[in-house]
């Protein structure tokens, strides 16, 4: 098995938050590896540390100790410029609350990561149209986020995450603000990206609908990995 197979590696990661005199041990020695083109769900009770893992893997927050590798690169060693590059090109983020830029249309929201990447205007327009079509929103290109439904905003967010062809899509509760049917649509879209484009997907979630389409599930409890299940095991679990 070649090293390159792992696109995300997190090794013995600890994260402490200090609130005044109280120290909260949000992560206590978390380790796992994620293979290229895998679809992995991170599940666990509220407060178990899923979002903290999301922030750590995504280079969105520092950790107290431990190592995180994205494509074999130790992200602790990256400077500010390299980190921005990583967030811009390697990883696409999806959030529970969409986090779109409200001043800009759907198409412009997709173009801004490309602006930061230095993609010429013509190419940006073309690419953003293609991606919008892929997520089924070609007719809403000019609409601002405020004029779109929650499900449509999440599609724009997914489209934005895809702007610079990332190796990994990281999601934190992408379906938590959506109703059942819309949530299923979003999960279906993520699965399609995973299968058709080979994008690695890592999603923190409470949503049991994610279980059946995940290759693996990492269960987190009290800041530790409780167990890791393959899809095969999950089906056995479901029957017992």
């Amino acid at each position: 098995m070649s090293l390159e197979e792992f696109v995300v590696e997190i090794d013995d990661v600890y994260k402490e938050y200090t609130l005044g005199k109280v120290i909260i041990h949000a992560l206590q020695g978390v380790s796992f590896k994620i293979k290229r083109e895998e679809y992995v769900s991170i599940m666990g009770p509220s407060g178990s540390g899923k979002s903290t893992i999301f922030n750590a893997i995504g280079g969105l927050d520092t950790v107290t100790s431990g190592e995180i590798y994205i494509d074999q690169v130790d992200i602790a060693e990256l400077d500010a410029y390299e980190l921005a590059w990583l967030r811009n090109r390697k990883i696409g983020y999806i959030f529970q609350t969409f986090n779109l830029l409200l001043a800009f249309s759907a198409q412009e929201n997709i173009e801004i990561p490309m602006v930061f990447a230095g993609v010429p205007r013509e190419d940006r327009k073309k690419k953003s149209k293609e991606i919008l079509k892929m997520v089924g929103l070609e007719d809403r290109a000019k609409n601002k986020p405020g004029q779109l439904s929650g499900g449509q905003q999440q599609r724009v967010a997914i489209a934005r995450a895809l702007a610079n062809d990332p190796a990994i899509i990281l999601a934190d509760e992408p379906t938590a603000n959506l109703d059942l049917a819309t949530g299923l649509e979003i999960i279906g879209l993520l699965k399609r990206l995973n299968e058709e484009q080979g994008t690695t997907i890592v999603s923190a979630t409470h949503d049991l609908k994610m279980i059946s389409i995940s290759d693996r599930i990492i269960w987190i409890r009290d800041g530790k990995v409780d167990r890791i299940e393959d899809r095969a095991d999950i089906q056995v679990d479901a029957m017992t």
């Binding site: 500010a80 590059w85 967030r87 930061f116």
Partner: peptide, 15 residues
């Protein structure tokens, strides 16, 4: 918060 969004999509501090 908006600044946080810009950072997530690859904006440099200077941008």
């Amino acid at each position: 918060k908006e600044i946080g969004v810009y950072k997530c999509i690859g904006g440099l501090d200077s941008h």
